[in-house]
Nucleic acid binder design. Sequence first.
DNA 1: CCTTATTTTTAGACATATCTAAAAATATTT
DNA 2: AAATATTTTTAGATATGTCTAAAAATAAGG
Lengths: 218, 218
Amino acid sequence: MFSLSEENYLKTIYHLEQAYKEGVSTNALAEGMDTKASSVTDMIKKLSEKSLVKYRKYQGVKLSESGRKTAVEIIRKHRLWEVFLVEKLDFSWDEVHEVAEQLEHIKSEKLIRQLDKFLEFPSRDPHGDPIPNADGKFVVSNQTLLAELQKGNSGIFVGVKDSSAEFLRYLDKIQVSLGKLIKVIDKEDYDQSMIVEVDGLKINISQEVSNNLHIKMT
Amino acid sequence: MFSLSEENYLKTIYHLEQAYKEGVSTNALAEGMDTKASSVTDMIKKLSEKSLVKYRKYQGVKLSESGRKTAVEIIRKHRLWEVFLVEKLDFSWDEVHEVAEQLEHIKSEKLIRQLDKFLEFPSRDPHGDPIPNADGKFVVSNQTLLAELQKGNSGIFVGVKDSSAEFLRYLDKIQVSLGKLIKVIDKEDYDQSMIVEVDGLKINISQEVSNNLHIKMT
DNA sequence: CCTTATTTTTAGACATATCTAAAAATATTT
DNA sequence: AAATATTTTTAGATATGTCTAAAAATAAGG
């Protein structure tokens, strides 16, 4: 199996690949791992020898098939534990990350299989991010960001992209909570702000905010 | 906080202290940690510098107050996770140990506080061992081994001492399961074997077996 | 009580994962 | 395209936790 450090590198490379499709640079990875570029080079070499990444000097890294598989497994574990913490142990959205970062490295196939079952096979974590299934597949769904909706569209608020405590407090304040039906009443062309209706109340929402709300279309 | 290795040493010293009250020898600890005596000496020095153990060269170690506190916290976490695995994730008694060994090192006060609450403050783990409370206190109870009961006594079967898969299969076979009321009908003087009644059935049980069953007296 | 056996410690080495500082490669500017 | 700036890699060092082999301390036996 892989060391804690190796697993964290794989996970970080996976996330950075979304933004850097051509390959993740050493510096970007150093920033993501909160370490020095030289340390990154060392670790990349190790991962490369284990065929977890494809690496050519000075050209950045990409995950190999087996590297991606491992990264997705870790992400699956992270997100399932987040669901557990919020749904069963009454954690709030902004408290789960640090603990899930630890729990994601526990090694036991049975543990995660049974946890998944216990949680009734959730498809999204508390932030609205999809949870890959046991085969590592992300099951697609009819989900989008509120910002993508047009005047007249509506959907269920199923998650947030920005899970900072600050943002969650803001949502609390405007009384927008998970599971609510949100309808777009009007959308301003000049700043993309919206007037939406939630529980019969009309609320004005900036694009910054609408970009952070995951909506499941009905 | 303490490293994984430090935590494992503290836990092992704690357990060995039950048998070696005068202090745990370097060799005993090496055996318990499955490592070499020289490694143990190195680690003991480190723990001693951190005031987690009391150590005089060639005289073995004892836990200090803070060392004992830390060890008990780890044991509390281990046992709570075992309850979780058995009660919520359908693990069997003989599968939980390895996973709990990993989970016991997760660092989050809130996690363990909420887990305890979620499990409704269990007082014993699936093997019948007591779970210290958040203050590190073992709440005493009216529990004993079946072997200690006399003719006519009865009590609830609340745990096993030997949790080998073999033994658990045997219990399954004779239909003795957790929570059952067991009454001692007769006890042989010459081999200490017993005839007990469970669910109206009379079963013959050897001393070897009765010595492995934790009973809560009613 | 002195010799032998056992236990424990020390000394020096190794692997992992990190760092700093310097060198090498690549990218950018003029 | 040459000079400069940036990025990446290498080289050498450090901390943790382990090991082997040898030395030192303690325990046991005659």
